[in-house]
Each structure stands twice: as C-alpha cells, then as structure tokens.
C-alpha cells in the first residue's frame, strides 16, 4: 500500500519535472526566435531561417548573423552557466543566498578580466583564462580563510561578502584610472552586458560549457545527496570531499568563463536556483532546470533592457533591479514556512 503511494508520488514528481523542463525549453526557444526577429528592423522568419541556413540575405546577414545571433547565443550560454554555478553553490552551502555573485567569486574573475584588458592590453583566450584562474583563486582563498576549524557555510558567506567589497573597490579603481574609457565598455564590467557580444565570446564560452557542464551533470546526483548533510551523503556512498572539490572547481570555472564573456550579470546565479526549485518542487534534479531558468532570465532581461524603455539598458541593470524584490519574496516565503536562511 505505502509502496504504491511512494511510487505514485515519485511518478508525479518526475512528471512535474518533465513538464517544467519542457515548458522552460519552449519558453527559451520562443524567446530566442523572438530576439532574432525583433529589433530596430523586423525581419520575417523566412529571412532569419535563410541566414541560419547560411544563405546570404542583404542586410539580414549582418544584423541577424553578426549581431543578434551571437548576442542571443551568448545570452543563453551565460545564463545557463550562471544558473548552474549558482545552484551548485546554493545546494552545497545549503543557503539560497550563497551564490557566486554574492560571495565574491565573480568579482575576482571580473577584476582580473578588467586588469588584463586595461593594464596588460590582452584580449580573447588570455583574458578568459586569467579570469578563470582568478575566480578559482578567489574561491580557494575564501575557502582557506573560512576553513579554520571546519568550514561553516555562514562564515564562508560573510568572508565572501568582505572579499567581494574589496574586489569591487579594485574594479572601481581600474575603471576610474583608465583613460579614454568608453561608457559601453565600462558598464559591461560594472553590471554585465551583451552589447559587445561576438562570435569569439560565444566560441570561448561554449567550449568551456562543453567541458564543464558534463562534470556538473555527472556529479549532480551527489549534489542532491550532499544536501542531506555530509554524513548522510557519505553513508549513501558519496566520496564527499572529492565530489565537493570537483563541483566547486567546475561551478567556479563556469561562472568565471561567463563573467569573462559578459561581465558580471547581477543576480542570475542568485535567482535561477530558487526559481527552479519553485517550479520543479522539492524533488528532482535541479541542474538542468536551473540552467534553463538562468538562460530564460538573461535572454528575457536583455530583451526588456533593449526594447521596453526609451533608452537601451545593459542586461545586468535589468536583472540587478529584480534582485531586491526577489530577496524580499524569498525572505517572506521563508518566514511563512518557518524555515531559516
């Protein structure tokens, strides 16, 4: 009897997960198509399809093929990367507020990327790789500082906030001291923007995603078990320390690659996980839904920023403005369910 009930519940949960993932994918596809068609000039679907198929369409080949397409692809990749990185950290530290953009990791990547571009005059792969190294280094530093007498999530988060403040001031210094600094570029490193999206960025980030996402997906099962606590996870056969290290490195690298490509798009890694949990319910794997949610968030926020207002705003301004109401919602909900952050 009870076995039947459990089985029915499991089936319901997995059906809900399936429906959610399908719905998110459809939304993402629709947004993607819309962002290719819509713009200062609206091209018919047939033109867009022709460009995608590689034909030469006057006008559309450039504005769709060289501007809108890399922008949309980069939005999806960056959103998914931020989403995966966020949900990994949130699950591992068992705190919905502990995403890499709040505890300083993306700040580290950001400062390094900026330093490479402004001071060393680098570009492309060198910038991305340095950003990733800095991101991993920042994460490692925070971990070491927090590790005195066993890592405690709370302490790690607070130290991360301190580090983030310090790195942010370094970002500001680099921006203020750079001369001939154009505003478009500056905004990219303060709030994150897709305005300078190019195929190079797309190539870099998709390579990173191809390498890193499988790692996170394979370890995703362990991640679910780590939520139960280290001892329980170890009891269920998880090599706790190894899984955790691999996951941290993969998540940090994803966030850092995405930051190097787009700048720190605020709050995407913070919001994607909790939204995915709301959608999918308490059971089920979170990584794919969080990736899709992140991609939908970035793509739709970019559309809103570009077309809803009289002036064009970078995507990070839109997602950043969503952050405060979202936090209030999260806190009020936690209050109602009697949980604690």
């Amino acid at each position: 009897m009870s076995a039947t009930v459990v089985r029915a519940a499991r089936r319901r949960a997995s059906r809900r997960a399936g429906v959610t993932i399908a719905a998110l994918s459809c939304t993402l596809l629709a947004l993607f198509a819309f962002s290719l068609v819509w713009g200062d000039r609206i091209y018919p679907i047939s033109d867009v399809v022709a460009v995608l198929a590689g034909q030469d369409v006057p006008g559309a080949s450039f504005s769709v093929g060289e501007l809108r397409l890399p922008r949309a692809v980069l939005a999806v990749l960056a959103g998914a990367s931020f989403g995966i990185a966020g949900v990994t950290f949130q699950t591992m530290l068992r705190n919905p507020l502990a995403s890499p953009d709040i505890i300083g990791i993306t700040h580290g990547a950001n400062v390094m990327a900026l330093f490479c571009i402004l001071v060393l005059g680098l570009s492309g792969l060198a910038v991305s790789v340095s950003a990733v190294i800095a991101g991993v280094g920042t994460a490692f530093g925070i971990y070491l500082l927090a590790a005195r007498g066993g890592v405690v999530g709370t302490r790690l988060i607070l130290i991360g906030i301190g580090i983030a403040a310090m790195l942010h001031s370094a970002t500001l210094y680099l921006l203020v001291s750079a001369d001939q600094w154009d505003l478009q570029g500056a905004m990219r490193w303060l709030t994150g923007s897709l305005n300078l999206a190019s195929w190079d960025d797309v190539a870099m980030l998709s390579l990173a995603a191809l390498l890193l996402v499988p790692i996170v997906l394979v370890l995703g099962r362990d991640l679910g078990l780590l939520r139960l606590g280290d001892d329980a996870a170890a009891g269920l056969g998880v090599a706790v320390e190894r899984s955790r290290r691999l996951l941290v490195v993969a998540a940090v690298a994803l966030a850092a690659f995405a930051t190097a490509a787009t700048g720190p798009i605020s709050f995407v890694s913070f919001m994607a996980g909790p939204i995915a949990v709301r959608l999918i319910g308490p059971r089920g794997a979170l990584i794919v839904p969080a990736a899709l949610t992140g991609a939908v968030l970035v793509l739709s926020a970019d559309l809103v920023g570009q077309f809803l207002f009289e002036h064009r705003y970078p995507v990070g301004v839109v997602t950043g403005a969503l952050g405060a109401p979202f936090l209030v919602y999260l806190l009020i909900r936690t209050q109602r369910t009697g949980g604690s952050l």
Partner: peptide, 11 residues
C-alpha cells in the same frame, strides 16, 4: 543584495 539592486537602479 540591496546594494547591488540599488546600484543597478542608479545605473
């Protein structure tokens, strides 16, 4: 988080 959100609005 409030700082980040208000900074976005400022921007």
């Amino acid at each position: 988080i409030t700082t980040a959100a208000l900074t976005s609005l400022t921007t």
